[in-house]
Design a protein around this nucleic acid. Structure first.
Lengths: 137, 137
DNA sequence: CTGTATCCACGGCGATACTG
DNA sequence: CAGTATCGCCGTGGATACAG
């Protein structure tokens, strides 16, 4: 893939700053549509605990609708991030599980979640301060 | 923060699988609204090379509209991820720069971008294969 | 140059109802 | 149980025009 090494100190802009080759704008768009999808992230997170059935997901991911569950599940399956296993039984049973690829996504996404957890309060403060520029008295 | 350590092998579900305390669903939503915002990510990425002016951003981020540039810029500023410096000159000049916090976000987001770069082709293949279940002849 | 304001189209998404 | 189908609201975001 040969992406730009980001090991250089961000502040030391002595040379021509290295950026992504612009074509990556398209690539970024791709990830955003995956990792930036609330439901996708939630589903992948839930699946970290092992395979789950349709209704299990429906219940464990609080607030998701059938429509979005099914839709997102299809997306993830299409991308090869999860597998769908249908057991031909009388009460149909379908299990969804993370693929290896899906697991790597989860790891990457976890980085973001950690970041959010670490700086969540700080951001809240910033917002409050920004929204309330008064209070100089 | 005390998030779940993700070092354990995903496949070995011997114990009660550890998950985020569910309340994090809300937290996740927060990040998604930041890191999941295409324009926000693009702006932060562009700013990695040092401060940029409004029009510079407008041009370097191909495809963004004034409306979204301004809007996203405000958001990022509000969150304390970037700074806005207005130089009182005759042709007004405004420069935007990453804060330390913003830099940390960039680092975290870079993880995702790297992931995307690494698995982009693989995902494309998966999609193609999924969309074309025929071709058995 | 650096925005702000308005209009509007499109897609995300929930709600609901129905099927194998 | 595991979906599919339809409808409609609403936010996102582009296009355009105007302003300091």
């Amino acid at each position: 893939m040969e992406h730009i090494p980001r090991t250089a100190p961000v502040g030391a802009l002595t040379g021509p700053c290295s950026r992504w080759p612009a074509e990556h704008g398209e690539t970024i768009r791709q990830i955003i549509e995956r990792a930036g999808n609330k439901w996708a992230v939630l589903i992948v997170s839930s699946l970290n605990c092992g395979p789950l059935r349709y209704t299990d997901l429906l219940h464990s991911i609080q607030g998701i609708s059938q429509r979005m569950l099914t839709h997102t599940l299809r997306q993830l399956q299409r991308d090869g991030l999860i597998t769908r296993t249908s057991h031909p039984e009388v009460p149909p049973r379908v299990e969804y599980a993370l693929t290896d690829l899906g697991t790597t996504l989860l790891v990457a996404v976890t980085t973001l979640i950690d970041w959010a957890g670490t700086h969540h309060d700080e951001i809240q403060d910033n917002r409050t301060r920004f929204d309330k520029p008064a209070a100089t008295s």
